[in-house]
């Protein structure tokens, strides 16, 4: 899922202070799971903003709404009938949701309430770690299901590099060496022969190097 982090309240206050009617718009998908922009976070942010502005003696209307998804036209349509009641929207969705809402409501200022971090997983309570960089050509079959693109700092495809020490990356003791993980997993799978195979030069044109990416599927287009 997409991992996001809440923006500091002070930053959001500065962004919204010139608007009088503000909608805090949450998203029920990834940002709910990573506790950054779901219904609960919408309620908390709205309450915090209301308290801040009332103590400042400012009259603001701060409303709350959470959509099933902000990256789908159908769900974004839900707020169209009430959109004129607001001067600005603070979207707690990931960058995709904010942009999609901005494209849909052209004259409405859209402000992000979270920082979108990465594609990752919930490793432990309060710990989310990166697992994928959406490079567009997956190599996981060869690397025992551990991604060297997202988990190796150097994106080394024939690793490890010389910086791997006791299973950790030279970045620091908190970062596992992806290639150590790959070797451990290939050993467990009894597929160390795969490790001996030299990976060919990766086609990075499917990554961001080729510019913004699109997926067009004629088979599902109507």
């Amino acid at each position: 899922m997409i991992i996001a982090e809440k923006k500091p309240i002070q930053e959001i206050i500065e962004e919204v202070q010139n608007f009088d009617r503000i909608l805090i718009l949450g998203c029920n998908e990834c940002v709910t799971v990573c506790e950054a922009g779901g219904k609960k976070e919408v309620e908390v942010l709205a309450s915090a903003l209301r308290m801040y502005f009332i103590t400042q003696g400012k009259e603001k209307v701060i409303s709350e709404h959470t959509l099933e998804r902000q990256c789908d036209h159908e769900y974004l349509e839900e707020i169209r009938k009430n959109i004129d009641n607001y001067d600005a929207i603070v979207s707690l969705a990931c960058g995709v949701g904010v942009q999609f809402a901005a494209e849909k409501y052209l004259t409405m200022p859209l402000l992000p309430g979270v920082n979108t971090i990465c594609l990752g997983a919930n490793e432990d309570r309060g710990l989310w770690t990166e697992r994928c960089q959406a490079c567009g050509s997956c190599v996981l079959a060869r690397t025992g299901g551990i991604c060297p693109v997202s988990r190796c700092a150097k994106r080394v495809l024939n690793g490890p590099c010389g910086g791997s020490t006791n299973g950790k990356c030279e970045l620091g003791p908190d970062t596992d060496c992806a290639w150590q993980l790959i070797v451990d997993r290939l050993k467990a799978l009894d597929k160390m022969d795969d490790y001996e195979k030299i990976a060919p030069i990766k086609d990075w044109s499917t990554d961001r190097a080729g510019g913004p990416r699109t997926v067009t599927r004629e088979d599902v287009k109507i």
């Binding site: 309240i9 908390v44 915090a48 801040y52 103590t55 400042q56």
Partner: peptide, 8 residues
Amino acid sequence: KILDQVGV
């Protein structure tokens, strides 16, 4: 923490 940030 939130109450601190909003001045309460």
